[in-house]
Structure formats: structure tokens, C-alpha cells
Amino acid sequence: MIFDWNVVTYAAPLLAHGVVMTLQVSAVAAVLALMIGIAAGLASLSSSRVLRGVIRVYVEFVRGTPLLIQIFLVFFALPVLGVRFSEFWAGVVALAFNAGAYIAEVVRGTVGAVEKGQSEAAMSIGMTRHGALIWVLLPQAWRPMIPALTNDLITLTKNSSLLSVISVYELTRAGQAIIATHFAPFEIYLLLALYYWALISALAWASRRIERALPQW
């Protein structure tokens, strides 16, 4: 087998477009996932049994079904119910829905692990349980949350490659298109792996920076 450098030099800049799309879809999904996850995580610590039950079902559903099926549900099944997304937004929604559940578990774990005296102190100055969660417990949980959150966001970014199946023109899809015309799977898939690896490394590096920048006490 001869390694074809020509196809690599040809593909590298083309794949950059895919990288941009991967970054876009992952970043938007990450923001949405964080909002869903934090809200759901706090809700699962709330005093409302109904709310806790709903979150339980959500998390179990996400954990108990393949992401690919979740993507198909959003892209092919929801339109039957009249909810229609573009490929991009279907991808964002599916990734966020998926990662949100894992983030909810992280939030529940870390916020719930803050010492009990803290919520009692918050209640002693007149806060409700919800007030204590938001103003006292959550702020103390940010820093311990970062490593696990990073994992979930890394997974989300890697999972974005599955969106190639619904024709989101992200990195994996872009690579497949080149393979289809140039038939160089070895070079292109290797290149794809390198691109993902660079992306994920950058993410992990940023996460360490953020963790270090957050105040400790």
C-alpha cells in the first residue's frame, strides 16, 4: 500500500469546512445541553416528586437507548408529529437532548454532594430549598463539576460524527464525501481521526484552564 500524500494535501483544507461545522453543531448543542442538564439536575434535587419523576424517566430513556436511534427520532419521527427541524437543528437537538441527561446526572451528583449544613444555613436565613440550590449549593459545585462536565462535552463532540447519517456536513460527512470521489479511506479516515483528536485535545486543555481559573476556598 502506498500512502497518498496528494489526497491528503487535497483533503486537508476541504475537511477544514467540516471542522467548522462540527464546531458549530457541537458548540450550539453544548450550550443547549448545559442548560438542559443544569436545569434537569437541579430539578432532580427539588422537593417536587413529579419533577423528579419526569427527570428520572428522561435520564433513563437517554441512557437506555442508542444515540443513533435518538437522532433518528428527532429527524424522522418528530416531523410525523408536526415538529420539523433542518438537519443542523435536528442534530443540535438530538446531541443536546442526549448530553443533557448525562450532565443532569453530573449536576445532581456534585450539587447533591455539597455538605448538608450548607443548605441548612441557607434555609436558616429564609431561603426555600430551590433558593438554596441556586444561590448556595450550585455555586459551590462548579469547580468539582468541571472534570465530569468536560467528559460529557468531549463525548458530545465525538458523537457529532453520527450526524453524518442525517447529512449534516460536518467533519465525518465531509471526509466520507472525499472518500466517495477519491477512494482513499486509509488516508482520509486517518486524517479525520487526527482532526478529532486535535479538537478534543483543545477542549480538554480549555477545560483545565477553566478549572484552574475558578476560585477555590
Partner: peptide
């Protein structure tokens, strides 16, 4: 919660934030 503010409570272990 609002009624609780009629009391101030000081804990053995401070429980500061």
C-alpha cells in the same frame, strides 16, 4: 421559609458559605 426568618440561627460548626 419567610416565617423562618423570624429566627436567627447560629450553628455549632458555623456553616458559613
Amino acid at each position: 421559609a419567610r416565617q423562618r426568618t423570624l429566627f436567627g440561627f447560629v450553628f455549632q460548626r458555623f456553616n458559613l458559605f
